[in-house]
Design a protein around this nucleic acid. Sequence first.
RNA 1: GGGAGCAUAGCUCAGUUGGUUUAGAGCAUCUGCCUUACAAGCAGAGGGUCCGCGGUUCGAACCCGUGUGCUCCCA
Length: 875
Amino acid sequence: MELSKNYLPGDIEAKWYQHWLDKGYFNSKPDHRESFTVVIPPPNVTGVLHMGHCLNNTIQDILVRRARMQGKNACWVPGTDHASIATEAKVVAMLRERGIAKSSIGREEFLQYAWEWKEKYGGIILQQLKKMGCSLDWDRTSFTMDDAYYKSVIDVFVDLHKKGLIYRGKRMINWDVKAKTALSDEEVIYKEVKSKLYYVRYQIAESDEHITIATVRPETILGDTAICVNPDDERYQHLHGKYAIVPLIGRRIPIIADEYVTTDFGTGALKVTPAHDMNDYQLGQKYNLEVIDTMNDDGTMSEAAQLYLGEDRFEVRKKIVPELEGKGHIVKIEDYTNQVGFSERTDAVVEPRLSLQWWVSMKELAAPALKAVMEEEIQFHPAKFKNLYRHWMENIKDWCISRQLWWGHRIPAWYTPDGQYAVAATKEEAYSKLKAQSSGLTIADLRQDDDCLDTWFSSWLWPFEVFKGFSDPGNAEVKYYYPTNTLVTAPEIIFFWVARMIMAGEAYMKEIPFKHVYFTGIVRDKQGRKMSKSLGNSPDLLALIDQYGADAVRFGIMISSPAGNDILFDESALEQGRNFNNKLWNALKLIKSWESRIESSSLTAQGSQPSSFATDWFESRLSQVKQEVETLMQQFRLSEALKTLYSLVWDDFCSWYLEWAKPGFEQPVDAAVYNKTIGYFEEMMQLLHPFMPFITEEIYQLLRQQEEDLCIKQQTITGKSNHDILRAGELLKQVISALRDARNKNQIKPKDPIKLHIETVDQTPYQNITGILSKQVNAEKIDFESASTNNMIVVAVEKDKFFIETEKQLDTTSLKAELLKDLEYQKNFRDSVLKKLSNERFVQNAKAEVVELERKKMADAEARIKNIEESLKNI
RNA sequence: GGGAGCAUAGCUCAGUUGGUUUAGAGCAUCUGCCUUACAAGCAGAGGGUCCGCGGUUCGAACCCGUGUGCUCCCA
C-alpha cells in the first residue's frame, strides 16, 4: 500500500470515530470491573466549542481513555446546562431582532421560543466534541432541564425548605421602573452620564453646627437614615455619636463612622439611604439602620417619602434642589461624570430596590464539604487551591438562589392574594397547605413565584442526578458509578460549582461526588489576554481542527498546559503537534518499507550485532518511560507525561533507535529486529493513544493485521529496565554526539569517512556498539590501537579518548582553542568541588553519600583535566 | 478594602525532602546539510544576576523575613 507523503488527518479521524461509535466502545454498563466515572462539566446549551472546552475535554478524554485501556469500566457522561442567564439573553436578543419584546409576549410564549431555540442550537457543542475525539457515552446525554432532572431540582428546593435551609430574605436588586420588573445584573447597561454633584448642609442636632454631604441624587435625601464619616477623618471626629437633622422633613439621624467612606471624595461625609443604594444597604445592615423605602414600583414617591407623593423621581430632583436652596441647605453644585445603570429592555435608569429573594443557608451544608477537602478525601490538583477553598468555606455567605428570569427552574412557591405563601412541588400541594389558613381560597387564586433558580442550583446535583441518584435513590447505576472519579474544571468556578457539588453530594448521597478535582488554567491569547468574543481573540476551533487535525490540536493544547497554570495559546504549538504526527507517519513509512526485505536472523548473523544492542537498549528505555508516564499520570502531570512520550518517540525511537536498527540501503532487515520494532511502535501508540487517539489507531492498524482495536487494547504490565544497558546507551549517544560535534567543527563533510581509534582502559562497553558507532559517525574503521597523534582530532568523553583520523588538513589553532576552553571549564569545576571538600564543616556535617559523590566528581574532573592536557601537548 | 497565587534562557514552563557535574526541556534563534522515512526534516551550537535586598545553613532556585512587579477571586 502506498502511504501519503505527509500525514493527512481529515478522513482518517472521521473514519475512526464512526468505527468506535459503531463498536459501542464508549458505552458503559455496570459490571464486575472497577468503575471509572467522569461527568462532563455541562457546557452552556448556547455554547459553541472554544479553547477552554477544548482543553478541558481533552484532559477528560485522556483520563477516560487511559482508564479504559487499564481494565476499568470507563464511563464519561455528556450533557448540557440550561444556563439560565446566558440562554435567556440569547433568546431575548433573537426575539428583539424579530421585533418582539419579551414583556409583550408573556412567560408561556417566551418559554416556547426558548425551547425551540434550545432544540435548534442547543447541543451543537456536543457534536463538536465528537470532532475532537471525545469518548463520551452518548446514550447518557443529560440536560439540566430534562423533565426528571427538573423535578429533582424542585424536590431538592422543597426538601431544603422543609429542613429550614431555604428562607426568604431581603436583597438589593436592579429594578426597571418602566417595565416594573426586576433585572438581572446582566440586563443592566452602564453608561457614563454628565450629572451634578450637590453639596447639601445638614444641621447637627442640639447645636449650631452643620455637616455637609455630597450627593448626585438629592431626591433620596427623604430616605436618609444616617450620615457616615471615616473614623480617622479629623474634621468629623467630634461628631461621632451625634445626630443630624434631615433637611425638609426634620428626621433625626445618627452620625456613624466607618472605614467604607473615603476621606477624599466630596466632603468626606456620606449620606446613607439603605433603601436606595447597594452600598448604603450594606452599611445599614452593619449598623442596624432603619430602611425607608421612599419610592413606588413605578419610580414615583411613596408615602414614606412624606413629600412629593406620587411625583416621578426625576421631577422631584428638579423640584427639591430649589427648595433646599431656598432654605439654605445647598452649599454648592458641581459638574460631575458618573456611571449610571440603564435597563437593557426599556432604557430606563435602573433603581436599586430592596426585594424579597430566596436564600440557601450555607453554614450547615459547608461544614462536611470543607472537611472532605481538608482531610483530602477529595484531592485537589494542584493542591494550592485547597487554601483558597478553605478561606471561602470558612467565611461562607448565604446563597441567593432566585433570579429574575423565565428560562430555568421556576421557584416552587405559591402565593395567596393576601401575601401568604407555601413551598411545594405542585400547585395542588401548595393549595392543600394554604387552604387551612385562608378561608374561601380557591386553587385559581394561587400565583406561582415569577422567578427562576440560579443555574448552579441545578448543576450542583449533576454528579449524582445524571444517574438518578436523588430521584431514584440507591438504584444500581448510582451505586456503581458514584462517587465519580475525577472532575476536570476551571478554578474560576471553584465556589460556584465545585464547592456546591461537594455540599450536595454530602447532603443527598452522604458521600463525596468525586475523588479528584483537576483544575485547568484559563486559556489566554499570546499576549496573555483572556479569550473573549468581544476581543475577537478566540480562534475558531473547528477551523483549527480542519487545518491541523484533531490530534495536533489536542497535542498543542496539552503540551502547553501545566495543571492550574493559565495557558498562553499559540498556534505554533499546534504546528508542533502536526509535525509530531508527521514524524510518526514517517517512522511508519520507514518500517513499512522493510516489509519486503525481511530475512530470518541466521542469515544476517553479522549484521545482527548492532541491532541486538539497539533492541535491548530500546526495550529498557521503553519500560523506563512507561514507568515514568504512569507516575506522572497518577500525579495528574499530564503535560509532562506527554512531553516524556514526545521525546521517547522523537528522540529515542526515531533519532536513535531507528538509526541504529535500520538496515543499509536496500539491505535485508533481520526478522527479529523487524518484529520487535513493530512491537515497540505498537506500545508507543498505546501509550500515546489517550492523547492523540486518531493517528495512533490508524498507525496501529497499519503496522500489521490486528485482532482488536487500539482504543480498547488493554495495557500490559511494565517490564523491568536494565540500568547497565540504559547507561551504555547514554554513553553511546554521548560519544556519537561528541564525535559529530568534532566533525562539524573541523568541517569534515558528513560523506567523508573517518578512521577512529579509541583509547580506553576497558574495551568491553564498546564491543557491542562499534557497528552502531561506525554507522553513526561515518567511520570506515574503528580500532583500539593507540595511534600516532599526527593530524588527529582528539575528543574526550568520560575517561576515554577518541582519535579521529582524516585525510583532511586540520586547523590546529581552533582545535587548541576548543581544548583550552574545555580545560578552563573543567578546572573551574574542579576548584569548586575542591572548595567544598576542603571545608571541614562540610565534610563533617554533610551526609556520607553527598561527600562521597563530591569525591567522585573530583576524581572524574581530574582525569578529564589530565586527558585534555595530554591532548594539548600532542598538538 | 479582604484573600489567594506567581516571578528561573527571547517565549512557555520543569526543577520532587536544601546536596545528582558552577540550573533542564520545548519553542524560537544561529551554523552546516535536499544524507537512500521525514526540509512539517537531519547534525550541531549559542543563550541564565534563578525579580532586588537581608537572614538561616557546611551548603539555597528551593526555607524565613522584607521590598518591587504582575495575575486571579470576593466586596
